[in-house]
Each structure stands twice: as structure tokens, then as C-alpha cells.
């Protein structure tokens, strides 16, 4: 079974207004606001690609890019 794995969590810093919605609702605390009040990825390895941050972002500033990973942990 192939499953989704995080390739990259893109945050458009020009669009992000730092509301903190993504930070608050991330089930794995992957995101934080930095000292410029912009969302930033701090623990990408914990991301479970639920994409809730992307779906809820009111600034349309987040894109979760995924890749397929097979049972052996190899990326396709």
C-alpha cells in the first residue's frame, strides 16, 4: 500500500497574515509563528499530511506537497 508522505509544506510568506489558525489546529504541532508573525514549518518530520492547515488557511498561503511512499519506506 502506498501512502502519502510530506514532500514540502510551502508557506507563501507574502500572503500569510499570521492569524495562527494553522498553528492552533495542527494535530502534530508542525507549524509555529516566527518572530515576524508568519507561519513557519518547525517539525516537518511529524507532518501526517492531513492538509487541514492548507484547507483552513484564510490567506490561501499554504500548500502541502506530498509524495507517495510504498510499504518499504521508499519514495516513488
Amino acid at each position: 500500500m502506498a501512502r502519502q508522505k510530506l514532500k514540502e509544506l510551502e508557506i507563501n510568506r507574502d500572503w500569510c497574515k499570521g492569524c495562527g489558525i494553522c498553528v492552533k489546529f495542527c494535530p502534530k504541532q508542525v507549524l509555529e509563528l516566527d518572530n515576524k508573525e508568519k507561519a513557519t514549518v518547525v517539525r516537518p518530520e511529524d507532518c501526517i499530511v492531513c492538509k487541514l492547515c492548507e484547507l483552513r488557511c484564510p490567506d490561501l498561503a499554504i500548500t502541502v506537497l506530498t509524495t507517495q511512499e510504498d510499504d518499504n519506506g521508499k519514495n516513488d
Partner: peptide, 10 residues
Amino acid sequence: PGCGHGTVLN
């Protein structure tokens, strides 16, 4: 910042 309307657009 945080306005729900952006999420509706999304």
C-alpha cells in the same frame, strides 16, 4: 488576519 471569508474562498 483570521477572517473566515478567506477560508470560504479556499
